[in-house]
Amino acid sequence: MADTFRALEVSESDGKYSLAVVDKTLDQLPAGEVLIRVHYSSLNYKDALSASGNRGVTRTFPHTPGIDAAGIVVESAAHEWKPGDQVLVTGFDLGMNTRGGFAQYVRVPASWVVMLPAGLSLRESMIFGTAGFTAGLSVDAILRHGVTPGQGRIAVSGATGGVGSMSVAILAKLRYQVSAITGKDGDLLTRLGASETITRTEMEDTSGKALLKPRFAAAVDTVGGNVLATILKSLQYGGIATACGMVGGGTLPVTVFPFILKGVHLAGIDSVEAPMPKRLSVWEALAGPWKPEMLGTMAEEITLAELPAAIEKILHGKMTGRVIIRLPD
């Protein structure tokens, strides 16, 4: 094991932030019971916010982003993990205020670590990453609500993004009819199994009506704001919408009528602090019956050196699908 390793680091100078691939030492990593040699990470919007100096995500710089990591345990002070274990880490504080997965090594608390499920490679686990895990939590909520494929279409907003594209692929694998809502090219969504694409403008109701014609049995919303409000007003009686994003705004311009007249449900999805039993059950499902056949081709693979350009792309809304990072050997 080398004393130094490569990492993408965000530095601050006079209120300006810059990115560079630098050499770090193991003693610069935070305290934690488990040292992991990272083989793959993935790029999420939260990583881009951290990399651009967003203090709501990361308070202290210099910093290494990366809220996802998959690799092999090299050292462990915890009895449940041993050198050679293939593991993954998503959420908690990784990549936020704890140095994250855009590096060859991370050191984390043992309670953050998940054993790589049988049925997934390290690479495949990061094609899922936090985006896929969040999609999995959303699908789990819909299934637990009792929505079956025969009840109607499932809407997915922000469908070309990480969570959205994963949700489309998982739901299609489970034989649901998916209505993919997007402001971008829908060809990707058709390949992932969407039954139809709907423009985002069509799902931005401005009529002022409290209720709209029922269109969907359930929905996975990654946008928030008026898109989520329109979805809620468009659910069938007893339908459910999951909410995990707010790129469209943090307020919800909707009355109580969908809830008290149509019995609809709104389920908040949190992938950061999800309890370990839930994590394990969702990861097992992602590795098994929910795993899309095309998973291996659902991401662009880049290097640490290519990350700054990819971060700029996702910040400007130009990213489609998933991007994973292969760490150098």
Rank of each mutant, 00 (worst) to 15 (best):
E300C: 11
K46E: 11
I325N: 07
L228T: 01
D329H: 15
S18V: 00
V256T: 14
K278I: 12
K46W: 09
L19T: 09
A299Q: 08
V74I: 13
S76M: 02
T58D: 08
K184C: 06
G321L: 00
K82Q: 15
G239E: 09
Q236R: 10
P214L: 00
F5L: 10
H79I: 14
V272G: 08
T297W: 13
S41P: 04
I260V: 14
L143M: 01
V156I: 08
A48T: 11
D329R: 14
L26A: 06
E33Y: 07
T222W: 01
E124P: 02
L49H: 01
E293A: 15
G15S: 02
V21P: 02
G162A: 00
G158N: 00
D221E: 05
G84V: 02
P277A: 04
K213Y: 12
E202G: 13
L192R: 04
E300Y: 09
F92D: 12
H63C: 04
H79T: 15
M1C: 12
F92P: 02
P83F: 11
K262H: 14
G71E: 04
Q86N: 13
L252A: 04
G239C: 05
D68Q: 00
L315N: 13
I311E: 10
L35S: 02
A135L: 02
I260T: 13
A110G: 10
A210Q: 15
V87R: 05
A78V: 07
D14M: 12
L228P: 08
Y237F: 14
P258Q: 10
W81E: 02
A194N: 02
A155D: 05
T197V: 15
Q236D: 12
L228M: 10
N226I: 15
E196N: 11
S50L: 10
T303I: 07
V34I: 10
P253N: 09
T251G: 09
V114Q: 15
T242P: 06
T197I: 15
D68R: 08
V256C: 13
G245A: 02
I170H: 03
K16V: 15
F92G: 09
M1D: 12
G150I: 09
S76W: 07
E273S: 13
H145G: 04
A305S: 13
I198A: 01
L261Y: 11
L88H: 09
V282K: 03
R200G: 03
A118W: 11
